[in-house]
Design a protein around this nucleic acid. Structure first.
Lengths: 213, 213
DNA sequence: ATACCATTGACCGAAATGGTCAATACGAAT
DNA sequence: ATTCGTATTGACCATTTCGGTCAATGGTAT
């Protein structure tokens, strides 16, 4: 994707990527229309097929690009030194939402990929990539003794993840309806509020002194 | 819907409803195909247009039917006497999932309705209906002093709702992939486990004596 | 002026679209 | 058996849309 469009001006490139992401997110592969994609991207039909020889290749290159972008961004922008799982989740969710400001449909698109699977050859590769990253997120240097004892750790972790996912989904709905960019500061505050509640609920009681005024 | 198909044998009626729900859930109205609907329902094209004069009418009657079915089922099957909000949520979520066993795509379909809106005339009517029901759920006879003091009640309630929604979405994914009906007993156990965790986290500490062996 | 790549949009045959309708199948009543 | 009426069929229609092609054009650097 990057190599294919490397000489194209940034703005046009983004329009193509975003238009394709939107069309493939809203429709199944078969019903997604290349006519719609070029119309929304503001380019001619010929140009799209000049760069991507077929609808299949476009989709294939797009999913490759998206998987690579998401996993690499997380890998690079995360602070891997901390041992607090919730903080790690928070970082991931903020990274995703920042990506969404640039590529509004990237999250929806990647969710569809994970649900429906994709071209087999690629699927193996990126699922492995994702799986590796997730193992790293959950296990590398994480201190699980922060959680209260006697609770179902697996379920609690899922509650926390689900909450973050829902916050993300809500932001996306807002973005779609208003068209304005997401207010990252407000969102960060929101995420932190929710995670504070969840930490207070599921982490061992902390030293009150540290948070004293 | 019910009146239109009243003389039809139950099985064929369900096949039509479920096929239409599926097609309209997976595709936007425009891209949904009446050819697909009749194929999956196992009926002829002519028959569908004999009962519903147009694709628009089919969709319209379908949404009317679904909204009515969901709200009425909740209204009737709920135990409105309790004052525990979490228990009320639990009931709603189990009712929804039971409906999903009969109409697998009813939940997806209704979500799309709420997101995208629908035909204007109907929209006003059923949104009001939904809103009324929700007010009843949240306010009629609910004891909010069960929650711990000093927490952000609104956010806590949303965490609980989101958790139930995610459990429902997961059940639906399983249903789609396996095709088997949902094991309601296992699911109920699951819902209760999660809600126990959330209650312990957000409700005031209860008398331990009652749960003593 | 020449060479070269980016870009266009009219055009293609094929497929799918929502909807129609004359023809049947079939059970009940006579 | 025959008639009647309704439930149901599927071939058929005009129209649109599909993915993809390609000769032509524009613009830029040499």
């Amino acid at each position: 994707m990057e190599e294919i469009l490397k000489n194209m001006e940034e703005d046009k490139k983004n329009r193509i990527i975003n238009s394709a992401l939107e069309e493939f997110s809203k429709n199944s592969f078969e019903k997604a229309s290349t006519n719609n994609i070029v119309k929304k991207a503001g380019i001619s039909k010929g140009l799209l097929f000049h760069y991507f020889n077929s609808k299949h290749e476009l989709f294939h290159k797009l999913e490759e690009y998206v998987i690579h972008l998401i996993t690499n961004t997380i890998r690079k922008q995360m602070d891997w030194s901390g041992s607090d799982l919730v903080e790690r989740f928070k970082q991931i969710s903020l990274i995703k939402i920042k990506l969404m400001n640039h590529y509004p449909y990237i999250y929806d698109f990647s969710l569809e990929l994970l649900k429906k699977g994709s071209i087999e050859e690629l699927k193996g590769r990126y699922e492995e990539d994702f799986a590796d990253l997730m193992v790293k997120v959950y296990q590398e240097n994480i201190d699980y003794t922060l959680f209260k004892e006697g609770i179902d750790l697996q379920k609690v972790v899922r509650i926390i993840q689900w909450t973050l996912e829902k916050i993300g989904e809500e932001s996306f709905e807002k973005l779609k309806q208003s068209g304005e960019r997401i207010d990252l500061e407000m969102l960060q505050k929101d995420v932190e509020d929710y995670l504070d509640i969840l930490k207070k609920a599921f982490y061992k009681v902390q030293n009150e002194e540290e948070s004293h005024d």
